[in-house]
Each structure stands twice: as C-alpha cells, then as structure tokens.
Design a binder for these strands. Structure first.
Length: 753
DNA sequence: TGTAGGCACACGCCAAATCCTCT
DNA sequence: AGAGGATTTGGCGTGTGCCT
C-alpha cells in the first residue's frame, strides 16, 4: 500500500498508452511522481446506439478501447448514452471528430485530459490517498481504481517565495531590452538569499537554488502576469534554460496565460488580492497591511527604481528581499484556504486561484454530475438575456438611533432548495414562480441537491470547529474550509445566470430573484405589521427599529411562515443614511464605525476626501451632534486653503478597464494613461493609474498629471476643496440638515482663487 | 477564462439657450 | 437693432466601483 498526498497531475508523455504522472508527497515525506494509466471516456447521445457502436469500432478502432451503451441523465432526464473509452489523451478533438462522423451529440468531451482525470476518477487534489502500487523499473506505478481517500492532515509543504527586479532607464522594463538585476528568494525553512551580479549568473543561480531547495510550492506576486514571462525571455537571451520544475524541466505556459511548473505548484498572490475587495490598489504592501502583516522594508516606487538602483542599490536589494519575505508570510497565512478551495472544487492548487468564480462553481458541479451520472454539456456561446434582479428600497434619510439589521441566511441558495429551482426541474404546468410562466417540479433537482450537500458540509465543519480550540491549527484549517464552501454556495445562483456556463439557465436565475423579491416584500410587510419601522432594505436585508421582542416574533414568523432563516446581523447605535441607496455609515454596539458604499471606502476618491468624509461621519455618529460634523469639515478646509496637505493624499486612482484605444470618452485617467504610454510605461487593462488635478482652466482632463510628476505649487486646491472634499461631505451633512453651501467655510473657500 | 443585477456619481459630450460684442 | 461668435446650461452617455 502506498499513501500519498496529491499535489498535481500532468500528462505522462513518455507512455504509449494514455497515462498521467501524479505528483505526490509520500507518507515518509519523499516527493515523487506516480505513473498511472488513465483512458478518458466520453459519452454520445442519439438514435440507433447499437448500430453506431459498430460504426464507431470500424472507423476509430485504433483510437478507442471500448464502447458500451449505458444509462445516463441529461438535464435530469434518463437517456441511453454510448460511453466510449478513448485510447488517447486528446479528448476534445477526438470527441469532436467522433461526434461529427457519427452524427451523435457528445458529452464530457470538451475538457482537458488532466481535468478529466480528477473528475472522472472522483479523485480530489490536495488530499491523501491510498493506492495499490507496483514497482516497475524504478518508477512507481499505481492503479487508479484502487485509490482510497484518507482523512489525514495536509503534510508540511516546502515553500519558496521569490521577487525579481528589472532595470530600465525609464518606463516599464521591457524583457527584450532590460536586464534582471536582482532576484530574492525565501523559503519556509528559514533560507534567504539575494542573487545579483551578471544576468546569466543570476538566472542560473536562481534555477540552481530552486533545484537545491526542491520546493513543492513556488509563490510570487504577479508571477503569472509579469515575472515568468520576463524571466523566460531573459533566460532565452542569456542562453540559460529556466529549469525550475521537478525532473529538471522548464517552466511552460499553459493555455490561459498561467504558468505551470512540473511537480510544483505555482502560486501568484495577485490572483488572491484581486478577489479581496477591501484591498483597493491591489499592491503587495496594501495586501500585507490588510492581513495585519508587518512590512519591514522601505517601499521603492516603480517610478523611482532606476534612480534608486543607480545611487543606492543596497536599498533596492533589501526591498526585493523584503518583498519576497512578505510574499512568503502572506502565503503562509492563506495556505490552508488555497488548498481547501482546491479540494472542494477539485481544481489543483495552482489552477484554483487562476480560475474565476464561475469556473470554480462549474468544476464543483462537474464533480457532482459525475457522482449522479448527469452528463456534462459542452461549453457554447449563448446570447445572454438580462432579467430582473433584487429590490432595493430608498432609505429614510437622516440620523437614526438603535437600528437592527436583519439578514436572511443565504437567501438565494435557500430559495433554490425550498422551491427546487434547477435546470433539470423546469416545468410549464403546476405551481409557477412569481410573475413567471413556468415553475419547478417536486422531484429533487441537481442544483438543490448540490446546494444541500454544500450547506450540510459547511454545517458539519462549523460543528467540528466548536470541538477544537480557537487558536489551534485545526481550527484555522476548518475555518478556511468553511469559507471555501460558503464562497461556492453563494456563487451557484450567479453561475446559473452566466452566459458562459455549461449549465446556463436564465429561468433558474430569474425564478430565484423573483422568489427573492416576493420574500423580502412579504417580510417588510410583516415587520411593519408587527410595529417595526423599516428604514431601509436591500435584497435580503432589512434595517428596522431595534425592539427586541418584536424582532424575535418577526424572526419566528420568518422561520414558521417562510421556512427560511434570518438573524440579527448587527445593531447600529446610530446610523446615517443619505437619500441614496447602498450608501450608509453606522456606529455599532462595539464602538466601531462601519462605512458602506460611501466615498470613504471607494478606491477612486482622493485620500483626503475619504479622510475628511470619514472624520465628519465619525464625529457625528460618536457625538450625535450634526454641528460637530460641520466643525470637522471647516478645520480641513482651512488646511487645504493653506496647502498644508501631503500631495500623496491628493492622488486619484482609477483602473484602466480596456485597451486604451477602445475608450470613447476623454476621461482624465485615460488621458494620463495615454501620456504614460507615450513616456514608455506599459498600461494594460487592470492597471491602476494615479493622477493629480493641477491648476488651469477648462476640462479636467486638460489639467491632470501622473502623481509622480506633480509639484506642490501646481496643485489645484480649489478642485480638491470643491469637487473632492465638499462633494464627499455635503450629501452627508445635508442628510442631517446642514446646507454646506450656505454655512461654514464654504463661501470663504471660494475666495481662494 | 466574465457568477448575477441594482445603484450612485463624476465628468465628457453635444445641442440648445443665453450672453456678449461689434457694427 | 441685429448678426454672429462665445459661453453657459442641461440632458444624456460613458466609465468606475460599489452593495447584496
């Protein structure tokens, strides 16, 4: 018996019959690749199965192992399908050819060989398994059908983080021109190294060190987007092979821009920062701060890197090493989450972070489909029809006291279960979804089944969490797992309304929101009937006056009459609403101020505007006095009039969301982006551009500059007072009855110019 | 290789309205 | 007084980032 933890799988190119290399960590701690034969299967559906099987065997005799008729489910309906076991790893193109030739619809075919490996064999990555092994000429071979899942903790992984610095005189470094000058490495066994010197030596030392450490995981920041590409090109120029994989293999780019390293897991923390909405600028340092990880190096801005390298190269080296160390530390705090997400979705750890929410859900559903014999439909382009979403009530504006926020617990998943909403249960007779001309049958659907499993799994995890100490490793692992499960659960509804989904079903998404609207409307009416005034509501939440016994009754009613669960999410001692939806700020029982939707938490407002708005709101909420808010604003206006604010606080950051030439309107951030591109900087979709508004007349886009080129004297303070600070505060103050344009320092501020 | 829809808000764009200057 | 250019006004579209 061989026990091993599964890292990743790659195709075994040395084998004549379709085979995989399963990269594992064995129980004794050794790292190796297990060889296993695996012939993938596809399904064909259509008329005359028996005859078609004969044709199949005739035409594709060398490409198939066998074919037999089996029962399967197609959108819940029992069908007869030909299961074809292929003697090839080229599943998609062979599947297509067979389907075309025999005029049969193919299923489970447009998937990569390695993806099929996990799904079809019901094997999960990042998990312990037991296999029956056979040793043949120094390689270990296993029989997949003997795989037995073991419940055992993840082994300690060897991890290396790295960071690289490239030198360019001006602008973004270009791989065809600008060299690598530093690479820093850190391992989780305490190893640290700064590699500098001649470029070819840097590159080969980098590979040698990786080989020596032999890590299971290589982690970086923007390594998929920037580093691997860059290092590969520099390696080519220097005639060095970038051998960082196991078996001395080179790194290679896989289909969707992500890089794979044989036998190791390549992780890019940038993928994680992108799904962390609290981190606005998506920088490594901001991410570290968010995770409470101390950064102990001086950040070198990319615009000052060339100068710094020429004058104080030691600082740059330390910066590089510092970043590598921070990358490792961040990775450590997120490792459990990454591998739990990998397990639950059956996507190997180095793919799960690259995959977007839709693909994670889909992979999970494909795994479930295999369990129940549901065929996996092909991915196809579909014209998406938009549908009605949730209800958002206009808030009662002003300063409120003692408000409870009541939330439905996972409303959409619960409704999908309650009404059996699924792509395989849609019917046109019987009970209909509110306002729609179709409904859902009673027989348990595929999606509700998957959701019940997910919810039960999460409940199980949360129960086990209660049995272990809160500061234990086990607790953290369980917590990561329940978070991973929750994310998948909540994304299922959205998945069904995604045009790219294999199981796209607009009706499902539409019915879910329809029942959601009915549910919240009924709940609002009931709350008011019980004497709770509802001041605001969005999708599945209600803001009501905090009257304990009435709320208890209300929650009981939801449980008994709606068969749904709701809870008091939080209580605001004070809360401010303007007239706008989705924007408010409140003081909670534990003395914290929470901002929702307001400029104070938006990434596209200047720091000064955000600071003043939060201070103004905080003062009003803490004191309960509106005049205190005005005082705060006046103090700041004085500072701005004296130009006594750090330029950094005036930067406005905005994302470039598409190729620059596709912009129709002349927006300030686009003008700056174009200027940057002209000066040799690379600005790609997804990048953030930081600009400052300077003095002048006319359109704003005619007087914006990149933040690093702005001098104190040119700043348009009037703009910042009017369009940033006052703009962010006036709606708040207006909501509590103060007209900023009539009182306070505003008039005086106009004299400024 | 994009979970969904609902929403606020700044600013550019464009045409109409209004203002202003000059003959 | 009236022509005609300059400037302001207001509605609408673009663009970004937020909420649940």
């Amino acid at each position: 018996m061989l026990r091993a933890w599964l890292l990743d799988v790659s195709e075994d190119l040395d084998s004549k019959i379709p085979s995989v290399l399963i990269w594992v960590i064995k129980e004794d701690g050794s790292r190796t690749a297990l060889r296993a034969n695996y012939c993938p299967s596809i399904y064909l559906v259509g008329e005359n199965e028996e005859k078609k099987i004969n044709d199949l065997v005739k035409i594709f005799s060398d490409k198939i192992i066998d074919a037999e008729v089996k029962n399967a489910k197609l959108r819940g309906k029992e069908v007869r399908a030909i299961k074809v076991k292929l003697n090839s790893t080229d599943v998609e193109s062979l599947g297509e050819r067979i389907s075309k030739e025999l005029k049969l619809k193919a299923y489970n075919y447009d998937l990569r060989y390695t993806t099929k490996f996990w799904i079809e064999n019901k094997i999960e990555p990042s998990t312990w398994y037991e296999f029956i092994e056979e040793n043949i000429d120094n390689t270990i071979k296993v029989d997949i059908s003997t795989a037995k899942k073991l419940d055992k903790n993840k082994p300690k992984l060897k991890v290396v983080s790295f960071e690289a610095v490239y030198f360019s005189e001006k602008g973004t470094p270009r791989a065809d021109r600008d060299p690598v000058v530093v690479i820093a490495l850190c391992s989780n066994e305490g190893y640290k190294k700064i590699i500098t010197g001649k470029e070819n030596e840097i590159l080969s030392t980098f590979c040698d060190e990786i080989t020596k450490i032999d890590p299971d995981v290589i982690v970086g920041f923007k390594n998929n987007q920037v580093h691997w590409n860059y290092l590969l090109k520099r390696a080519k120029i220097n005639s060095v092979k970038l051998k960082v994989g196991r078996n001395q293999s080179e790194i290679h780019q896989s289909i969707f821009g992500h890089f794979s390293i044989q036998g190791r897991i390549n992780i890019d923390l940038f993928d994680l920062v992108k799904e962390t909405p609290e981190v606005k600028l998506e920088s490594l340092e901001e991410y570290a701060e968010f995770l409470n990880i101390k950064v102990n190096y001086t950040t070198v801005d990319e615009f000052e890197l060339p100068e710094q390298w020429k004058s104080k190269s030691e600082d740059v080296k330390n910066f590089c090493l510092g970043r590598a160390a921070t990358i490792l530390e961040i990775y450590n705090s997120l490792e459990d989450y990454i591998f739990e997400l990998s397990k639950i979705t059956s996507l190997p750890a180095d793919q799960v972070l690259v995959a977007s929410a839709g693909f994670r859900v889909e992979n999970y559903l494909m795994k479930k489909a295999e369990e129940v014999g549901e065929l996996i439909p092909e991915r196809k382009e579909i014209v998406h029809e938009s549908y009605q979403g949730a209800i958002v009530r206009t808030p009662i504006s002003g300063l409120h006291e003692n408000i409870a926020v009541v939330d439905f617990k996972s409303m959409y998943p619960s409704l999908m279960i309650k009404h059996n909403i699924s792509f395989d249960t849609i019917v046109e007779n019987g009970e209909r979804a509110p306002g729609l001309n179709f409904g859902f049958s009673k027989e348990r659907g595929f999606l509700p089944m998957a959701l019940v499993d997910l919810i039960e799994e999460r409940d199980r995890i949360r129960r086990s969490m209660r049995e272990v100490k809160e500061d234990s490793t086990e607790y953290k692992v369980l917590d990561s797992r329940q978070r991973a499960v929750k994310i998948i659960t909540n994304a299922v509804y959205g998945y069904t309304g995604w045009a790219g989904a294999r199981w796209y079903a607009r009706e499902v998404a539409e019915a879910t929101t329809a029942w959601g609207r009915l549910t919240i409307t009924n709940a609002i009416n009931e709350a008011e009937k019980l004497g709770l005034s509802v001041i605001y509501s969005d999708t599945d939440s209600l803001f009501v006056s905090y009257k304990k016994d009435k709320i208890e009754k209300f929650l009981d009613w939801i449980r008994d009459e709606l068969s749904l669960e709701a809870k008091i999410d939080k209580i605001f001692l004070r809360v401010i609403f303007t007239e706008a939806k989705k924007k408010y700020a409140g003081l909670t029982e534990d003395g914290k101020i929470e901002f929702v939707g307001l400029e104070a938490i938006r990434g596209d407002w200047s720091a000064i505007a955000k600071e003043v708005q939060s201070k103004v709101i905080e003062r009003i909420l803490r004191t309960g006095s509106r005049d205190e808010g005005l005082k705060e604003l006046n103090e700041y206006i004085d500072l701005l009039k004296r130009a006594s604010i750090d330029v950094k606080k005036l930067i406005i950051w905005k994302q470039i969301t598409k190729p620059i030439e596709e912009y129709e309107a002349t927006a300030p951030h686009v003008v700056v982006a174009k200027y940057l591109i002209k000066s040799g900087w690379k600005v790609d979709p997804g990048d953030k551009v930081g600009y400052v508004v300077v003095k002048g007349s006319g359109r704003i886009y005619t007087r914006v500059k990149p933040y690093f080129e702005v001098k104190l004297e040119e700043i348009d303070w009037q703009y910042y007072i009017e369009n940033q600070v006052i703009a962010a505060c006036e709606r708040i103050l207006e909501a509590v009855g103060i007209d900023v344009r009539k009182v306070g320092k505003y008039k005086q501020s106009r004299l400024f110019t």
